[in-house]
Amino acid sequence: MVDVNDYNNEYENKWCPGCGNFGVIAAMKDALVKQAIAPHQILLISGIGQAAKLPHFMKCNMFQTLHGRALPIATGARMANHDLNIIVNSGDGDCYGEGGNHFLSAVRRNVDITLLVHNNKVYGLTKGQASPTSDMGMVTKIQRHGVISEPFAPLSVALSLGAGFVARGFAGDTEHLSYLIVEAMAHRGFSLIDILQPCVSFNKVNTYAWYKKRVYKLEETGYRPDDFEEALRLARQWGDRIPIGIVYREEKPTFEDKIPGLKEGPIISRRYDASKVKQLFT
């Protein structure tokens, strides 16, 4: 039996009190325990940012890498061993800014990993600059006259690139987020959960209260996430009402399915054969 305490470690947590990341980590532990996955059976990969620190605060296999680069690292890990169960923890700056090209490519490849983007719409680690998802007009110490770019729309972008599992979660609803993580991990192929996450230190607009007033659960509306056009409409819904839940789900052949060399199992499990090398020289 796997217990939630199995995932606790003694490493000192470094997030601000009240940080939305606490909701995310609680939901992750809950989802892993529900699936009876033990710490040595999971690999967390992250980049840089407050979200990317998460793996350090959980007892499990982990590789915290470079800013924006978690997805290519995870893709490479799956190329080596596609039996690995991988969750990538990233933030809006890490994934949609620095790692934007990798995000587009990971969606297109349909690598079988679960990507959690802790989207707090602001740069936390570097103290409050606008992020790719900050709403237009948001004022920061750097964006003194307000953000002048359109916000990055992760759900719409993922959908338009053919993503097979697109969901939105809310860090303030751990139970719902845990459900989404279980569903995302069960999905064969790339799964994205963009997690709305308040930043208590630097985002004074998108607070817990702000979100609580607006979010509604798609599951409670009778919505079936198999209509692409409807999914696109919901992906763009923002303002007074913000949907959370599974926006779109469609299983397709994965990156790993499409590589002939992986049919016989993980590439690391295959045997070295010197006679094949010798044949190169005949």
Partner: peptide
């Protein structure tokens, strides 16, 4: 780097 980390 990811592939090597994972054992290849």
């Amino acid at each position: 780097v990811g592939a090597s980390f994972a054992g290849a």
